[in-house]
Design a protein around this nucleic acid. Structure first.
Lengths: 355, 355
DNA sequence: CTCGCTTGGTAACGCGCGTTACCAACTCCG
DNA sequence: CGGAGTTGGTAACGCGCGTTACCAAGCGAG
């Protein structure tokens, strides 16, 4: 094999500089090298040899072998995250948040796919296999993240290592979890509408059984009751969680009343439905927010930030949940007690131009 | 520490079953265990002891230690991907495609963040650090992926290992890359419009210097000239690559002509601009696709699939590029020659309802 | 019987590193 | 001057596994 270093071909060999090479180059023992590289407190290495070793590291371009280190030290500095987000990237910011936090903690995040989404799908095995693979890598903790807030059942194997659920909770109630504060989000949304002077507020609801719908609606009810109002059941309509569903629901609610009785604001329980509601409103010659204010939920950037007018909405704190997941895991692996079995994370209001 | 196996706490210990344990349990040597587990051809292990060993593996719940294996065998089965996609997840399907393919090849994908996006950003160091970390894990190959098609400069260190660029190309022209066939995409889009009978086609252009704009426009020109038509420069307007930009551009193009001279179709060079164009069209009381057909580019699901009517668009083959990246890497690490320095991947037309 | 060959294994080394035990040479103090 | 403590290191083991020697028993052929 030629010595050429043609980039991008297998001819480029790993340099393979080991601690032994460094030691020889610096004229010391391998142990000494290990000591200075790991910055041991009670090392007792003279300043002079210390710099000599560091120089050798530089000159040879030594790079520690993480695998060997993990083997010897019995800790890998890895967390694993298994998630269907890889497959359905709606909540990809969870990964981002986790990744960033892990990076800060000088840890690596091993990302493995799952497909729990379709319950007992065709390749249910994938998830178990993924966890198995992660454990083979000797991850020190496991994150389990879902694309939408719901109860899940985590495979048994996950119990071998500290595990934290993100954007979902353990149906068996044994594992700690981190979920959005849907109720608080619903409350803040309706408070915003009330503050803008709206009293008659229509709600475009999701499938009423999912945790998101339950929580957000409850929050809405709370906000209204604090203002001395009640949620008129007639003003709550459900639909498919799509733009079409939102369009249909908005049409129903808008056409049901004469203009003066019409709600002056719509709280759409997700942004996709808000997108459909926009069409229904514009189609009727009404303006946003002039005639009807709209507030969404989820803060799907691609929708909320590009609708015209831009959609005021409540954000799902994906990134924060991811980061908190890693922090919680760090606490667990360090043997610290967890703060709470289920941590709620705020859903902040994002003001744009539709209210 | 109590023996309780409270899940999710540090009390749960790694089981730590090693090959030695398996060997003892099966009454054989560790070597024998290693042989059957790695399915050696010329093993010469009797069928009987083979099953005895397998049983022991089952009973003890033995799980190989990937790190130790990597250390001994001098191969990690890992690829690294460094990408700003973690930060700006527009092209997250690249990761998905790569991950799936890697999974098929029984390899792991180590995902590390980058922020090349902002040229010489505040933490330019992040990228180098990320690559460094990946090399410490002894990845066998490197993928480098961008959120949008452009030239990049990859840090030197990446040369120590086979490297493939995805959705970007090496500004120095040394590394193999995989990019979308923008020109083919532009052609197929305009062909679709021509086929629907449109002759007067407006183009809403991106920033004219980026590769995507150049390629797509060239493709459009090709399609027209094949049909004996020419691209009227007056019908090409540029704008910011946002919904607002698309709205403005569409307004300009629509208001410039009397109805009979107006283009009957708009080719928007990305979906966000198409989203804005929708508004401009509807605002003028025109229907899609009745009065004006619209075709987009990128296939951003959240936009294209939820616009009303659903947007016909050309898809960027993110997933395929990711998969192809891993395949190319596999070929490189196996010492096979690469197929081509720059591989183009088809951008397929996605028919929906706006043409 | 003996030589050579197959079958069914095992002992032992090394991968790169963390860590513990130990050791020689210098102080310092009485 | 002798012993205790400090400074500046080193030898050697083990982490879990792949792999290469090597070896004993059985067996057929000459």
């Amino acid at each position: 094999m030629a010595k050429s270093t043609t980039p991008g071909t297998a001819a480029v060999r790993q340099r393979g500089v080991t601690m032994k090479d460094v030691a020889k180059h610096a004229g010391v023992s391998r142990t000494a090298v290990s000591f200075v590289l790991s910055n041991r407190e009670n090392a007792s290495i003279s300043e002079e040899t210390r710099t000599r070793i560091n120089d050798a590291v530089q000159e040879l371009g030594y790079r520690p072998n993480a695998g060997a280190r993990a083997l010897a030290s019995q800790r890998s500095d890895w967390y694993g995250i298994v998630t269907e987000i890889v497959t359905a990237p709606f909540a990809v910011d969870i990964i981002k948040g986790a990744q960033d936090q892990a990076w800060l903690d000088r840890r690596f995040l091993l990302i493995a796919p799952s497909d729990q989404a379709d319950a007992v799908g065709p390749n249910q095995g994938l998830e178990d296999a993924a966890i198995e693979k992660l454990l083979e890598q000797r991850v020190e903790g496991l994150l389990y993240a879902a694309t939408f807030h719901r109860g899940v059942r985590v495979p048994e194997t996950a119990n071998e290592v500290p595990t934290v659920l993100i954007n979902c909770f353990d149906a068996d109630g044994k594992l700690p979890s981190i979920v959005p504060d849907e109720r608080g989000g619903g409350r803040v949304a309706v408070e915003r509408l009330l503050q803008a002077g709206h009293q008659r507020i229509g709600v475009i609801n999701l499938d009423p059984v999912i945790p998101a719908a339950v929580g957000r609606l409850e929050g809405a009810r709370e906000a209204l009751s604090t203002a001395g109002l009640e949620l008129d059941p007639e003003l709550v309509v459900s639909g498919y969680a799509t733009a079409d569903g939102g369009y249909d629901a908005a049409c129903r609610i808008l056409d049901r009343y004469p203009p003066k009785d019409r709600p002056t604001a719509l709280f759409c329980l997700n942004d996709r439905m808000a997108m459909g509601a926009y069409d229904a409103i514009k189609e009727r010659g009404l303006t946003i927010p002039g005639d009807i204010a709209v507030i969404g939920f989820d803060n799907q950037e691609l929708i909320a930030a590009y609708l015209r007018p831009k959609l005021t909405t409540v954000a799902l704190p994906f990134e924060k949940m991811g980061a908190l997941g890693v922090q919680t895991l760090a606490a667990l692996t360090a043997g610290q007690p967890i703060l709470a079995d289920q941590q709620l994370v705020d859903c902040p209001l994002l003001e744009r131009s539709s209210v």
